[in-house]
């Protein structure tokens, strides 16, 4: 049971929820208010949606032994471009204009993903460095788009992406669910998952087996850009507006944490989209829990650091090895002395 790779992350998530339940018995209560689902659990899902999206994109990138540091900047760019276009419309509530704004933003994000993919797969630059370029420059580009201002918008259709409801359920949850469902189907029903794992698990073996690893690599960075773009729109819709300085700040780090917690290794190969979703929810639940427990929210980062450390440690084979050895000590001191004598 503990062997299953989602055992530890799921246990940690359940443990946190249990803490919440004890601290606040009404925590699990979900009710319908004004035709909307309402409750702490719904909040966790709703607020965690952007991280889930970015995490899904990042997971596929990491599966190929890559990493995409630029997603935070892409989130900012996506929101900035959409809001810039919306703010210039005579009627922000026009659906047509909103669709154009969304289309423009996502189109640009696909291009940015393609840029990352080009650097990694064609120029052969190490992913961490290749995406560092856009991470640094992208934040500047986002500020360039917004001219350093916070662009506020009023568009109803656009805001629905972040705070709207459909069939009682928040739209952002539905979007995250749809992206998760579609990408899971895509990787497991086609051969994409297997081929990505082969590319990341052993690139040279993949090449000699006839994999077009360059093309696959390119594909995942483009997909990662798209996911970040959708997340960026969601964050902007929630704000509502574009804040080029803060939108998506540190989301790349949270996304990498989420997938690490979910059991995907940064060294590539085997990946688990479900694990990433669990990881993202764990991170979001943590924030909510800190709030529920009445711990000052300035301590959120501290608690996050400690919980993440704990989850990473129990998943580390080296750590478990050490703990086990401590319980069953071997007479190591004698042999160590013997070495010193002979030396």
């Amino acid at each position: 049971m503990t062997k299953h790779r989602l055992f530890w992350p799921v246990s940690a998530l359940l443990a946190l929820l249990l803490v919440d339940l004890i601290a606040k018995p009404s925590f699990f209560k979900v009710e319908v208010r004004d035709g909307h689902l309402y409750g702490s659990l719904i909040d966790i899902l709703r607020l965690g949606a952007p991280l889930i999206l970015v995490g899904i994109g990042m997971t596929l990138v990491v599966a190929t032994r890559g990493i995409d540091l630029s997603v935070g900047s892409v989130v900012a760019i996506s929101g900035a471009l959409a809001c810039l276009h919306l703010s210039g419309l005579p009627d922000q509530d026009a659906v047509g204009g909103t669709v154009v704004a969304v289309g423009m933003a996502l189109g640009l994000c696909l291009a940015l993903g393609a840029w990352n993919g080009f650097l990694v797969s064609v120029l052969g630059i190490q992913p961490i460095i290749a995406t560092l370029i856009l991470m640094v420059a992208g934040r500047g580009i986002a500020q360039l788009i917004t001219d350093g201002q916070i662009i506020t918008i009023t568009s109803g259709p656009f805001r629905a992406l972040g705070s709207g409801y459909l069939f009682l359920v928040p739209v952002s949850i539905l979007i995250a669910l749809a992206v998760f469902g579609l990408s899971s189907l895509l990787v497991r029903k086609s051969a994409l998952g297997l081929l990505l794992e082969a590319v990341g698990g052993n690139p040279e073996a993949g090449r000699l087996s006839g994999l077009r690893s360059g093309r696959l690599t390119w594909l995942v960075y483009v997909f990662g850009g798209l996911c970040a773009g959708i997340a960026g729109l969601m964050i902007a819709a929630n704000t509502p507006g574009a804040d080029a300085n803060h939108a998506g700040l540190w989301i790349e780090l949270d996304a990498i944490l989420a997938l690490t917690i979910g059991g995907t290794k940064l060294t590539g190969g085997r990946f688990s989209l479900g694990g990433t979703v669990i990881g993202a929810l764990l991170i979001q639940t943590l924030t909510t829990t800190v709030y529920t427990l009445g711990i000052p929210d300035t301590a959120t980062l501290l608690v996050k650091a400690l919980v993440v450390l704990l989850v990473c440690l129990v998943q580390s084979p080296a750590f478990r090895d050490r703990v086990r050895r401590r319980r069953r000590p071997v007479p190591a001191t004698e042999s160590a002395r013997a070495v010193e004598v002979s030396a």
Binding site: L194, L195, E197, G206, L208, S209, G210
Partner: peptide
């Protein structure tokens, strides 16, 4: 280093070349 993908299963390693030849969409 050039042959197998250690963390994949026997089945996955066996079908890898055939699958690669077909492409991921098939």
């Amino acid at each position: 280093t050039e042959g197998l993908v250690g963390e994949l299963t026997v089945r996955e390693n066996i079908v890898l070349a055939l699958q690669a030849a077909r492409g991921w969409t098939r």
